[in-house]
Simulated scan of single mutants.
Amino acid sequence: MGKGKVYLTGAGPGDPKLITLKGLETIKCAEVLIYDRLVAPDLLEYASPDAELVYAGKLPENHTLRQEEINQLLVLHALQGKTVTRLKGGDPFVFGRGGEEAVVLAEHGIEYEIVPGVTSAVAVPAYAGIPVTYRGVASAFSVIAGFENCDKPGTSIDWARYASPGETLIILMGIGNLPSITGNLMAHGRPADTPAALVRWGTYTHQETLFGTLGDIAGKAAAVQFQNPAVIVVGEVVNLHEKIAWFQKGVPAVQI
């Protein structure tokens, strides 16, 4: 029996219509479909009726399957000659651990293909009317993993690096650490009055947005129990939402 092939596919930021045509093809051809928590359920309907569907969703405090187990599943099914699609929210190489899975597959001599997806780091702010760059306002943006404990010794995040007012910060998976994130940014020189926004369930019809500043957004989020999944946006571009907002027009932002 020959080895199968694995597709490491990005499903996009949420709205199922935002998956790429190539991504949709990999769902349809899959004999085994291993999918994450934030993959839109509607996408699973494109899978073959004979396909084996495996849920591998993760919450910060609860993983259905550990990453090592997911890696083993990819290898196991591929060695059985099956076509496997590993379907991830957003893009597989943007905090999606797709690189780790690709390395494991390469080590086992298994053919694989990377199918990029639309990352929530850019798409979710766009759906909130926030461009991550804007001439004369922000000429650069950085994407940061927010789940790391920002106060631990030896943190890999150089907060001083992100204190520049001319750069937009996009922080993924950071709601649980929001007070620490905002505190570190201000401690390293980012002004407390810097505009900030939290966008929950971005690109879905039930999208919610909470606006504030670096100094008060954590308190506002706590007051309304703002939860994941959400994208944090910090920078002057946040103010542009008042002019650019286009999605869910007429639906108010979260109020407290």
Score class of each variant (00 low, 15 high):
Tyr204Pro: 06
Gly10Val: 15
Thr26Trp: 04
Gly235Cys: 05
Lys152Gly: 01
Ile27Leu: 12
Phe93Glu: 01
Cys29Tyr: 00
Tyr46Asn: 09
Pro16Asn: 12
Lys5Thr: 15
Glu61Ala: 08
Arg135Pro: 11
Ile19Asn: 05
Gly136Trp: 02
Leu87Gly: 06
Gly99Lys: 02
Leu24Phe: 13
Ala121Phe: 09
Asn184Ser: 14
Ser48Cys: 14
Val234Gly: 01
Met1Trp: 11
Ile19Met: 10
Gly98Arg: 05
Asn71Trp: 00
Ile70Tyr: 08
Leu65Tyr: 12
Cys150Ala: 15
Val254Phe: 03
Thr203Pro: 04
Leu185Lys: 03
Gln80Leu: 12
Leu73Ser: 12
Val124Trp: 02
Gly89Pro: 03
Lys22Tyr: 06
Leu172Cys: 02
Ala221Met: 01
Gln207Cys: 03
Gly117Thr: 07
Gly189Ala: 00
Asp42Pro: 08
Ile70Met: 08
Arg190Gly: 08
Met173Gln: 04
Leu169Cys: 02
Asn149Lys: 13
Pro41Met: 08
Ala102Arg: 04
Thr194Ile: 06
Pro131Trp: 12
Ile170Tyr: 07
Ile19Cys: 02
Pro116His: 13
Glu100Phe: 09
Glu242Val: 13
Glu68Val: 04
Thr119Ile: 10
Thr155Cys: 14
Tyr7Met: 14
Ala223Cys: 02
Gln227Ala: 14
Phe93Asp: 03
Thr9Gly: 11
Leu65Gly: 08
Arg66Pro: 09
Ile144Pro: 03
Ser120Ile: 01
Glu208Gly: 04
Ala245Phe: 03
Gln225Lys: 12
Pro229Met: 01
Thr64Gln: 08
Ala102Pro: 04
Ala102Gln: 08
Val254Ile: 15
His77Val: 06
His188Asp: 04
Lys82Arg: 15
Ala78Gln: 06
Gly189His: 00
Ala47Asp: 11
Phe247Ala: 05
Asp216Ser: 09
Pro153Lys: 04
Met1Gln: 14
Ala145Trp: 01
Val238Thr: 09
Thr194Glu: 11
Leu87Pro: 00
Gly202Asp: 11
Val137Ala: 03
Pro41Tyr: 09
Leu33Asp: 11
Gly146Tyr: 00
Gly146Phe: 00
Ile181Cys: 05
Val237Thr: 13
Gln227Cys: 11
Asn62His: 15
Tyr162Thr: 02
Thr194Lys: 05
Gln207Phe: 02
Ser156Cys: 07
Cys150Leu: 11
Phe141Gln: 06
Pro165Val: 12
Leu8Tyr: 10
Leu59Pro: 00
His77Gly: 13
Ile114Pro: 10
Val39Trp: 02
Thr203Val: 11
Ala123Tyr: 00
Leu24Lys: 09
Lys88Glu: 05
Arg190Gln: 07
Gln225Arg: 11
Arg97His: 01
Glu100Cys: 13
Gly202Gln: 08
Ser120Gly: 15
Leu105Ser: 07
Pro131Val: 11
Gly176Asp: 03
Gly89Ala: 05
